[in-house]
Design a protein around this nucleic acid. Structure first.
Lengths: 339, 339
DNA sequence: CTGTTAGCGCCTTCAC
DNA sequence: GTGAAGGCGCTAACAG
């Protein structure tokens, strides 16, 4: 029985009052006799009334919708972030509208248009390499923006991120302390600041230890296959340079590290006896690998929560140009058996 | 510069025509002089016009939005499905509005209300244990519904799913053929039909082989920790019954299998020499584990695509009660080194 | 080919 | 306390 929508008019008629009265009753606004209010509320319940957020949005110009841009749904890092954003949003009466862009600049524009068209109250962008043109596009919408882990073009945006450089340094300090010397970096050619920060941490740490940062190999992406590809390139390169495999591989993230471990296993190299491996992010599966993966834990969920908190504070403001907010979350080194 | 929205009225004024004319020009509808149309289009471009899908939705009663319900964003299975739905949706001019419910019945209702309020044109529900009351709630909205992998209460809904029973049988046939005899089932207490089908496949296959289905242990959920918990319970139970570990563990899904493998490793049991392990789904990481996991590949992405296709066909209909559509996708056994 | 009028469902003044 | 208007931005019907 695809029943027709019931509107406040229908309720008004049934209750013998006018629509505005119903509207007020439903929102608990304006003083009115408890009796009428009660009757209206009951009627609304009975008739199965659901307010049209569309109509409401049209008049109030607020959709109670937050647009969330991610690169892909198929990434364990993003997902936790999304979950965090959603929880915090719901807690405050907002819905989230998630869209993935892939690595497609055209699609990025489409998403922004769609967000604008649907009048989202705010936009959160997660882990994108926000280029300057994209940044301009976002800015032009006049909609509040919060960036997660992507302040590459971000000196002008509100942002929540973790400190990749510090994290990378902790990973490296751990490896050096354990006596590893031929440490290679496995990079992600597709990542922006996150990668350069981690790369730099690797480089600086080696130099500070009086070693040379000799071997950095990049995979085409930060996924499993990217880790495999990069490792397959790394091993011969290391042999050429050192006459041996690296004694440790510092990977851009856990996912690439898993790919790297698979290649090492396949080559008969033991982890960590022959080669140590470290990841980054501490995705769920990291603790369950064989051997369990040493990594740097990122508060992914919290990242989403705080991004939404910043957004809420922005939405509460009347000031169209509130001072820039930047939050940096601190992760922690998690040492497991892979190093 | 949070510029004010420009509306078709603004354009109309600038172009010296009436709004409806602008509306028509923008939608390429109604014949009109190429000149005026051209001028209007240029003006719209210049002024940075973005149509208000909110207003449009209010009058057309179509939002071009598809609501998608999942249980959690943090699940590698769902994510591929979502990605598939999104791609197909975008290809046809729809956006998707994803909401996660967790295992919270209250939240399920909220989501439906939100979807109704935002006037989604259709609802796709993925991998939920759609209970009867929830089913009723969905039905009452009068919005077209498509279920993915959750036709538990689904004799009345359109659905796209894979055949868990057949898949389970293939897994079991493989194990039996390899000579495994003490095969345990590691179940997910929280899953609905997917679990019962796989469980049944395990049971029937053993009996058909003249063996008894003796040991099925359930984890509290289908996640890593669920796999760990169940396996920790399984080993002593097996020892009690057989005086030895099972020689194979047939897991509800890959994620639980990873948890199981971690426990086996920790106990010094070799895979597959001491205990074989099989999963289900073929999530990305399955091929990269040590040892790589034997599993049953599910066309997760395709599942999403086809669900959206069914939805599109429904939206194209005028018939309020189109004949029920059910699509069953076929997966395939992927034998790797864990068995 | 274009303008006028009306209304989607709701909220927000304002009178009463 | 409540009702009567007006309008959010857009499309649909009908004039002209």
């Amino acid at each position: 029985m695809p029943q027709k929508r019931v509107s406040i008019k229908d309720i008004a008629e049934a209750a013998g009052v006018s629509h505005p009265t119903v509207s007020r009753a439903l929102r608990g606004e304006g003083r009115m006799s408890d009796e009428t209010r009660q009757r209206i509320l009951e009627l609304a319940q009975e008739m199965g009334y659901t307010p049209s957020l569309v109509a409401r949005g049209l008049v109030t110009q607020r959709s109670h919708l937050i647009g969330l841009v991610i690169t892909t749904f198929a990434d364990p890092f993003h997902n936790e972030v999304v979950q965090g954003v959603e929880e915090e949003a719901i807690r405050h009466g907002y819905d989230i509208f998630v869209a993935s862009t892939g690595v497609n600049a055209e699609r990025e524009k489409e998403v922004v248009r769609s967000f604008q068209g649907r009048q989202v109250d705010g936009i959160i962008v997660s882990s994108s390499r926000v280029g300057d043109d994209y940044a301009d596009l976002l800015q032009e919408t006049g909609i509040p923006i919060v960036l997660i882990n992507s302040h590459i073009a971000g000196s002008r945006f509100h942002a929540v991120h973790h400190d990749d450089y510090a994290g990378g340094c902790q990973i490296m300090a751990h490896l050096l302390e354990r006596g590893y010397r031929r440490i290679a970096y496995l990079g992600n050619a597709r990542a922006g600041k996150a990668n350069t920060d981690r790369h730099r941490a690797w480089e600086d740490s080696l130099q500070a230890a009086g070693l040379e940062a000799e071997l950095a190999i990049y995979g085409p992406n930060g996924r499993l296959a990217g880790g495999v590809r990069a490792t397959e390139a790394l091993l011969p390169a290391a042999r050429e340079r050192w006459g041996a495999p690296p004694d440790a591989i510092c990977c851009y993230n856990d996912t690439m590290a898993i790919g790297a471990m698979a290649v090492l296993h396949r080559c008969g190299l033991r982890i960590p006896d022959d080669v140590a491996v470290t990841g980054f992010d501490d995705i769920d599966v990291a603790a369950y690998l064989e051997p369990p993966l040493t990594t740097f834990h990122q508060p992914r969920h919290q990242l989403g929560v705080e991004a939404m908190q910043v957004m809420l504070s922005l939405l509460g403001q009347t000031n169209p140009h509130p001072p820039r907010q930047v939050r940096t979350l601190i992760g922690r080194l998690v040492v497991r058996r892979s190093s």
